[in-house]
Design a protein around this nucleic acid. Structure first.
Lengths: 286, 286
DNA sequence: TGTCATATTGTAGTAAAATTACTTAAATTG
DNA sequence: CAATTTAAGTAATTTTACTACAATATGACA
C-alpha cells in the first residue's frame, strides 16, 4: 500500500520547503476542513501563494491539488485518520478503545490488500484433499489453532489442534504423505515450531505456514500464507496479527466448504440442529 | 453513520430520473474512475448534460459535484464498498476472500461505533481489582476464552480459562466475592452458560457477559458488553463476532495494564525476555 | 384528442478554481 | 560578494462547476 498521506505529512520536515511546511501545518490542523477547501482559501490560511500549494501537492506525489484532496479524503475515511497512534499512559477509556479498534481495522485492511491469493488458493486445494489436517500453534497462536480446529472439524476430514510443543513434535513425526500441517506463528522464529515444520516435511506432509514472511518458518514450508506485521507499532502486533490469522482461516474454511460442494451443506445443517437443542432457542454456534 | 453512497446508488431506481440513472450506471461501472473525472467528462460518458450530473449529485444529498466525488471517494476508501455481500457457491477465491475480509472490517467498525464505553470502563475497573479472573466460553467462544486467558495471565491477577461446561459449573460454584467471571457467548442462549452465570452470581462473583444484547445471558449478568450481531448476514455471524470479542478483550487487557501503572511495565518486559530465548532472534509472542 | 401544467433535460453564459508560464526574491556556494 | 541555484509569488490561461433560462417531454383532465 502506498504510504498514507497523513503520515507522510506528519513526518516530513525534509522534502518540503519552508512555505510548503506552512501548508502542511494548516492541513494537519484540520484535515477535514482541508478536503473541502479550494486551493485559494487554503493558500490564504497558510499565508502562501496558490502555486505554492500546488507544488506542495506535487512533492507528495499527487498530480495536483484535486488529486491531493482526494487522497487525503480517502485516508481520512479509512477510519484511521492518524493511523498507528500508540496507546499512551494517560489515555481515557474511549481513547485507547478507538486506537485499538482502528489498529485492528487497519491491520485487516492491509492484510486484505497484501494477501497472496495464489497461496490461498493452493492452500484451499491442499486442505480439501487432505487425508487429515493438523493445526499447530503456541502461545497466542495456540488459541488460533484451536479456533481453526473448531471450524474445520465440522468438515469431514479428520482434524486436530496441537498447542503443546511436545505433542506437536510427535504429531509431526507421525504425519504421513497426504496429511496437511498448518503451522501458525506470529514471529515465525519459535525454535520448536521451526523444528516441527522440518520434521513434518520429512514425514511427507504438506506444510503450510501462517506467519511473517522471510522468517525461518516461512522459509521452511511448502505454502506460505504471509502476513506482514505492521512496521512501527510494536504494541499492536500481537493483537492484530492474531485477528488477521483468524480471518485468513475463515477464508480457508469457506473455501474448503465451497469446494466440498452443495451435497455437503446438509451435513452442516445436521450439526446446527444438534447444537440448537442446547439452547433456549434458535441460531449459530456460541 | 450516514448510509453509504454506493449502496444508495445501487438500490435507488426511485428518487432518480431516467438521465440521472444513466449517470448512476456510469459511476457504478467504474467508481474509481468517477472520482477522478470532471463533471464534463462524466456527463459525456453518461451521454447527458453537465447540469444533469449536478442535479444527480443534489438528489443524493450532496452540495454539488465535488462534494459528491469526495463522499464517493471516502466510501470507496472504507474498504467496504459493497458491504455485506454473502459468499456464493460460484465465487472464485479472490471473491470470497474479499467478502470475508470486508465483512470482518465492517463488523469491527460497527462494534467500534456501538460499544458501550461506560460498560467497558466498569469492566476495566472490576478486572483490575479482581481477586481472580475466569474466562468462560464453549465452542468457538472457547478459543476466545483461551486467548483472553493468555493475555491476562501475564498480569499479576490469578486467571483461568474454562472451556468445558462441567468445569465451568464447578468453577462458578467455587467462586467468591471479589472474583470476576467473564462469560463469552455469541448467542447468549446456551443453557449451561446461562446456568453458570446464575451460579456465579449466587457465589458472589461479579459476572461480566460478552454476548448479544437482550439474550438470556445478557439479562443475567452484572455488566453487559453487548455486541449486536450483524442483521442480515447469517453466515458471517460466527466469524465476525468472535473477532469483535477478541478486540474487546484486547481493549480490556490494555485498560487493565494502563491501570496497573508504569511500575508494572518491567514485569511485562521480563516475560518478553524469557520468551525471546525460545527464538532464533528478537520480538513478541508468537 | 387537444391544451395546460408539471417535470425533466439541455444550452449558454458566468464565476470560481486550478494550473501554467514567467518574474522576482532568497539562499547557497565558490 | 558576484553567480548560480532554489524557492516563492504574479498574472494570465485553461479548466471546472454552477446558474439562469429555454426547450422538450410527460402526463392529467376537459
Amino acid at each position: 500500500m502506498t504510504t498514507n498521506i497523513l503520515d507522510r505529512l506528519k513526518s516530513n520536515p525534509s522534502c518540503l520547503s519552508k512555505s510548503e511546511r506552512k501548508v502542511a501545518q494548516v492541513i494537519l490542523n484540520d484535515p477535514n476542513k482541508a478536503i473541502r477547501s479550494s486551493i485559494a482559501s487554503l493558500a490564504k490560511s497558510a499565508d502562501v501563494s496558490e502555486p505554492t500549494v500546488n507544488r506542495f501537492c506535487r512533492s507528495l506525489d499527487c498530480t495536483g491539488f484535486p488529486d491531493f484532496k482526494l487522497k487525503l479524503a480517502q485516508c481520512l475515511a479509512t477510519g484511521t485518520p492518524y493511523v498507528n497512534r500508540n496507546v499512551e499512559p494517560n489515555d481515557r477509556v474511549e481513547d485507547y478503545t478507538s486506537k485499538i479498534f482502528e489498529a485492528t481495522m487497519s491491520a485487516v485492511s492491509d492484510a486484505k490488500r497484501s494477501i497472496d491469493i495464489n497461496a490461498l488458493s493452493r492452500t484451499v486445494d491442499a486442505l480439501s484433499q487432505a487425508r487429515r489436517i493438523g493445526f499447530y500453534g503456541l502461545g497466542a497462536s495456540g488459541s488460533v489453532a484451536m479456533d481453526a480446529h473448531h471450524k474445520f472439524f465440522r468438515l469431514n476430514t479428520p482434524c486436530s489442534a496441537y498447542t503443546d510443543a511436545l505433542q506437536q513434535r510427535m504429531a509431526a513425526a507421525a504425519a504421513k504423505p497426504g496429511d496437511v500441517v498448518v503451522i501458525i506463528s506470529i514471529t515465525g522464529r519459535t525454535i520448536s515450531l521451526v523444528e516441527t515444520a522440518r520434521i513434518a516435511r520429512e514425514s511427507g506432509a504438506t506444510v503450510i505456514a501462517l506467519t511473517t514472511p522471510h522468517s525461518p518458518l516461512a522459509e521452511n514450508c511448502h505454502i506460505l500464507l504471509g502476513v506482514d506485521s505492521q512496521e512501527n507499532t510494536d504494541i499492536y502486533i500481537n493483537m492484530t496479527s492474531r485477528i488477521v490469522y483468524l480471518t485468513i482461516l475463515d477464508v480457508l474454511a469457506t473455501g474448503v466448504t465451497l469446494k466440498l460442494g452443495p451435497e455437503f451443506q446438509s451435513h452442516l445443517k445436521r450439526i446446527k440442529t444438534v447444537l440448537a437443542e442446547m439452547r433456549f432457542s434458535s441460531s449459530p454456534t456460541d
